[in-house]
């Protein structure tokens, strides 16, 4: 049944595109609403009738994976959820995959957020991933949720030298001093690795500028695709690895499922979303071709009439 659905969807999309292509030869432009309809079908169809692709991690993703893999057990890793629900479809799969990886490796994970909306998304990861999949892990010893703090870069400026000044307690008001996970952790400089997830400001770039560089702590980032090019200047010196958009998430999930047996059958929303992304990209490329044909036809007919 899914195969029939996929076939019909592809037929509708590419049949329609072929028709528009023929129209464009007579120099006719496409109305934006038609483009919207095609994009809708290209995104919706693979969600209803899933098409899955195999992903192989590129070096920029593998570098991040390997760093978490190579850290000794018990290392302190901070994961910052600096994103909102809008970015969540792209960034939350990364957050879930990295959290799983860290906890499975026996690292101690500190969850925090510089975005008010990030705190709820952090709770979602804790509730849906960590509590059911890692019942043996203890809050305050193996992981801790210290929540959101307002102040943007100001927060980073403070925690780079003194963590507890900004976060005296965890999200439930328990003092950090009383937690085993915070033994030996005074500031960000005492952390072994930081994973900054986000895309806006403050986000991964601010983590690099205000914490990574001054405190000399390695940073890995996961960002919405649109922001990824902005982070390339920092790779590989200041940023260990970059997960860019849903493709980055899919590559990380693929690496996790292949290299860590426990996760062979885990949910892989990133990989599932590669179907809509692939089809949408093909549709956009088709429209660019159609637009150019129409443009050249119009140009030629314009010069002919002159």
């Amino acid at each position: 049944m899914p195969n029939i659905g996929v076939s019909i969807s592809l037929l509708v999309i590419f049949g329609g595109l072929a028709w528009l292509l023929i129209r464009s030869i007579s120099g006719r432009e496409v109305d934006r609403r038609i483009i919207f309809v095609f994009i809708f079908v290209a995104v919706a169809a693979p969600l209803l009738f899933p098409i899955t692709f195999q992903e192989k991690a590129t070096s920029i993703v593998r570098d991040l994976f390997d760093r978490i893999e190579e850290l000794p057990e018990g290392s302190h890793v901070l994961i910052s959820f600096d994103f909102d629900p809008a970015m969540a479809p792209e960034v939350q799969p990364m957050a879930n995959a990295i959290s799983r990886h860290c906890l499975d490796k026996g690292h101690r994970v500190i969850f925090m957020s510089l975005w008010a909306t990030g705190q709820s998304l952090m709770t979602t990861t804790l509730t849906n991933v960590i509590l059911p999949e890692f019942p043996e892990k203890v809050d305050g010893r193996d992981y801790v949720n210290i929540g959101f703090k307002a102040g943007n870069e100001g927060v980073l400026n403070v925690i780079v030298s003194d963590f507890k000044k900004m976060f005296p307690t965890n999200v439930n008001g328990v003092p950090l001093d009383s937690m085993e996970i915070f033994e030996g952790i005074e500031s960000c400089a005492d952390l072994d690795f930081i994973v900054a997830l986000g895309g806006g400001r403050p986000g991964p770039k601010e983590w690099v500028l205000f914490v990574g560089d001054p405190a000399d702590v390695p940073i890995g980032v996961g960002v919405a695709a649109v922001v990824a090019p902005q982070l390339y200047p920092y790779y590989p010196q200041q940023v260990i690895g970059i997960l860019g958009g849903i493709k980055g998430a899919a590559e990380y999930e693929s690496e996790l499922t292949h290299r860590r047996e426990r996760f062979a059958d885990m949910e892989t929303p990133g990989l599932h979303m590669m179907g809509p992304q692939t089809l949408a990209h093909l549709v956009i490329m088709s429209f660019i071709i159609i637009g150019n044909i129409a443009f050249f036809r119009k140009k030629r007919s314009g010069s002919d009439s002159r």
Partner: peptide, 21 residues
């Protein structure tokens, strides 16, 4: 809030297509 924000953000897919065109 979550679905509403995601909906607004997903408009990008449509606008990227029309702007690219």
């Amino acid at each position: 809030i979550n679905p509403l924000q995601s909906t607004m953000y997903s408009l990008l897919a449509f606008f990227v297509a029309s702007a690219s065109y």
